[in-house]
Design a protein around this nucleic acid. Structure first.
Ligand code: MN
Ligand code: MN
Ligand code: MN
Ligand code: MN
Lengths: 226, 226
DNA sequence: TAAAAAACTTAGTCTTGCTTAAAAATAGTT
DNA sequence: AACTATTTTTAAGCAAGACTAAGTTTTTTA
């Protein structure tokens, strides 16, 4: 319960479990995501379990407890608010914010959090379209669906880009593939092949795996609701 | 030499040695300032000495090496830029910034440092009047002298308040005793007794020890130089 | 100047978070 | 169902940075 006894490391574990897990998360998956050994993960899971922050059954994966979920959301809120702030207030590009936020998320005070949230007008989405958990623990909904699930010839708006790597994000931004951009899906090659997309400026081909990370909404839906 | 191998703890030790020491700093002084045991200090000094960041002679105190001084200045620059930024950009009061800066100073990137410095117009003093070390390692001069060394009836401008404690700073601010304020030294009680000061709004009595932490310049000097 | 006091260092532990290597459990395959 | 491959856990240990208790060195004082 005492927030002050949660280390940066624990926060990263809880946040990562949240991000990975609709359902229960496997040791190895966590290990890869956090770049530590499986043995390290097992050790940390035991500790988090003792603190009642996760439900952990040996050999069968983890999931977050109520208390653990709150800490995960709090950390994620810090991360995404910081990303938004760095972009809006300090002129960072969206591909530069992740690493800075990954460190700062553990070290800002609640006061700092409140101040930048206020200054940004209590934003609900970060520069990548990721929902920013709110102070009450609620998480804004994401209505978008992966670009790979859309039909050809559809005109779409990008709502979210689920990618962290700076170089990929930089590439996408150079081609206007950022939240808010309007695009048309020209062609989907069969057998999970590349997708051809028309942006306001040009036509781009995207690998299936990358396109899967881009979430979009149908333009018509947006228009009728506004 | 490799900045990446310097821990937060080391940065705090180096910064504190810099702040305490014109000359060599004693183990116990450091221990008190950092709120750790003397044994911990000895242990860390040995490590810093191995890394050539300090000159350390057993039983005879430490001082910074060239390399150690650079790290101390870098950390202090972070600290004071952050304090300034929190005040100017996020609306913090000057008594709230220290604790936040104490943590963040170790976790911001050089890019972040540059961006806030730029945004603030490359400031030379922080909200307390402390000089902000510059990127090239130079430190702006402080011309002020302690209030306790001034003559009665002198009209003065506060240039610096060398106090960290939030409650004291809050009190001082409530009485306009902040850098930039014009004051008159009405009376100095003998035997290091309290000082009576007139501000723009009222007359205040300050304990000698507190007044010693307030640095001022003579108003005439300021006028002639402007 | 020698004893007492104060300051400092050494020695031995603890905690946190990580590692590798070995053992155990689960999952997959014939 | 038994054997093998994979995953996970246990065991042992390292590095930081802190602590307490005990031993040294320096400083003070009588
Ligand atoms: Mn992190
Ligand atoms: Mn994001
Ligand atoms: Mn610090
Ligand atoms: Mn300051």
């Amino acid at each position: 319960m005492d927030k002050r006894s949660i280390s940066s490391s624990m926060e990263d574990y809880l946040k990562t479990i949240f991000e990975l897990g609709e359902t229960s998360v496997k040791t190895q998956t966590l290990a890869e995501e956090l770049s530590v050994s499986s043995a390290s993960v097992t050790g940390m899971l035991k500790k988090l379990s003792d603190l009642k922050l996760v439900h952990y059954e040996r050999y069968h994966g983890v999931s977050l407890s109520k208390a653990g979920r709150l800490i995960a959301l709090e950390t994620l809120r810090h991360h995404r608010l910081i990303e938004t702030y760095l972009t809006e207030a300090l002129g960072y590009s969206w591909h530069e914010v992740h690493d800075e936020a990954e460190k700062l998320e553990h070290h800002i005070s609640e006061d700092f959090e409140d101040r930048i949230a206020e200054l940004l007008g209590h934003p609900t989405y970060d520069p990548h379209g990721d929902p920013i958990p709110q102070r009450d623990g609620s998480v804004p909904v994401s209505l978008g669906k992966p670009l790979t699930e859309q039909h050809e010839q559809e005109t779409l708006v990008i709502t979210r880009v689920k990618e962290q790597k700076g170089d990929v994000l930089k590439y996408l931004a150079e081609h206007q593939l950022i939240p808010g951009s309007e695009i048309t899906l020209i062609q989907k090659a069969p057998f999970n092949g590349p997708l051809t997309i028309k942006t306001s400026r040009q036509t781009v081909a995207l690998a299936f795996e990358l396109a899967k990370l881009i979430e979009v909404e149908r333009l018509a839906v947006l228009d009728s609701s506004s």
